[in-house]
Write a protein that binds this DNA or RNA. Structure first.
Lengths: 249, 249
DNA sequence: CCCTGATAGATTGGTATCCACTTTGCAGCC
DNA sequence: GGCTGCAAAGTGGATACCAATCTATCAGGG
């Protein structure tokens, strides 16, 4: 049982990345405290963790919300991903781990197979995994964690500016990229990576159709005993609102 | 007065970066709470912030310590800095902002001047600033913040594996780098950046001479009323230790 | 004498209340 | 109709406690 706030931050993070919590959703301390059956302070600590990660914004005295990056910031996130992966390509010159390219090739093959079977969902997963594998080639945990953080933020953007990707072309570019790396054409590979991410970014469109905002307790996958039923006999969270006891229900 | 824990995290961060708090130093909640005259909870939140940033490690039930990265991790941090800046160089091809190179040139000139005057300290500052300016050329706030975080971790390493740098050579390489960028020789520039950081990393040596560990209240620049004097009449933090009231002081 | 186990102290993790300050929505007033 | 003032709600922080855990000390046995 180590680190309640860490666990809870992970749970909320997962819910955000799975788009069960949409950008802009209010993350009320009280509500979350009831859902996870912990005190508000633990929730606050979890929210601080998430805000440091960029997935949540905390507005003083107003509360925490799932981050809702502007289109400008979205572009910056993708650009930064490009920067990191271009840098990784530059580093690959120093480590001629031929064998590791097979991992990338394997990933491309798997994505191709998924596409052949028409499984867009799975193909998308493999498409994301490709970039992880690329960074993993550095065997640099700091870089890997940095990249993972950026990817979380990119994943958040999916929920805001959703659109469809041309998985076939993306996969082709992956294959092409592996070839360039194999032939040590670093500059070409970096250019391709840049174009690749521009293609990804073009896949995003601004659609302001109201995002489906489901209640927190559903998004966070808790049984969510109906609020009034639990309010009376819960083993005792912060019952701060004694002023409202005569109130609603 | 917004965000007490944020302010405190900033203060501690600054003390760590200035090497007033050395790696491995214990950051006791009670002690910090007394120094900053806040409750332990606010301190804990500040420590969570710092741990997410990588400057502090929190060991469950043991407390928080200034991070003490292994040599392996130190190498990874520098390598990641290299990756990011190589990626930035790759991006520079897309933005031919000729005018912005003048900023880099100006920095190089300032560092040269500082070296001519024998001011190693100032030269070191300019040397660090060069890399900030380089990343700033992207005008990408996400990338800039990412880079800043990495630099904080690198700054922490200085305290652990301190050594002397050949500022002259580092400055020469900066100048050379600007020339390569100007001539759009991206691959050469990236190679130079890699060598540059290897030179920086070589400047670090492992010296296990006991690090000068000054008391927290001095490191954090508080008047630090002597502990016993304040213990009696403090306006009231977490007086958790009622068990010791009959004790020592 | 050294090693091992018990025990007490100190520290952290978490809970329960309470209070202060902001924001916000609404009602009444000009 | 727009503005002001008040009350409700919610966050930020403080206080007080408790449980779990780590640590250091000390006693006993080989």
């Amino acid at each position: 049982m180590s680190g309640r706030s860490e666990q809870i931050a992970a749970r909320i993070c997962e819910a955000i990345l799975a788009h069960r919590l949409v950008p802009g959703a209010k993350l009320g301390e009280r509500e979350l405290a009831e859902i996870f059956e912990v005190s508000r302070i633990v929730i606050r600590q979890a929210l601080i963790r998430l805000s440091e990660d960029g997935l949540v914004t905390v507005e003083r005295n107003r509360g925490a919300f799932v981050a809702k990056p502007s289109l400008a910031e979205a572009v910056e996130v993708f650009e930064t991903l490009t920067i990191v992966e271009q840098g990784v390509i530059a580093q690959l010159g120093n480590r001629p781990r031929k064998s590791l390219l097979t991992e990338l090739r394997g990933n491309v093959e798997r994505q191709k197979a998924a596409l052949a079977k028409g499984n867009e969902q799975l193909a998308g997963e493999f498409g994301l995994e490709f970039h992880d594998l690329l960074v993993a080639l550095t065997r640099n945990r700091v870089a890997i964690e940095l990249h993972a953080q950026l990817k979380r933020r990119a994943r958040l953007l999916e929920a805001l500016y959703r659109c469809d990707f041309d998985h076939c072309q993306l996969c082709d570019e992956h294959e092409h990229l592996v070839g360039l790396i194999d032939r040590k054409q670093w500059t070409r590979a970096q250019q391709l990576m840049d174009e690749h991410y521009r293609l990804v970014a073009r896949g995003y469109r601004i659609d302001d159709e109201a995002l489906p905002m489901q209640p927190l307790h559903l998004a966070l996958g808790k049984p969510a005993k109906s609020s009034s039923a639990t309010a009376g006999r819960r083993k005792g969270n912060d019952r701060d609102t004694h002023r409202t006891t005569g109130g609603e229900a």
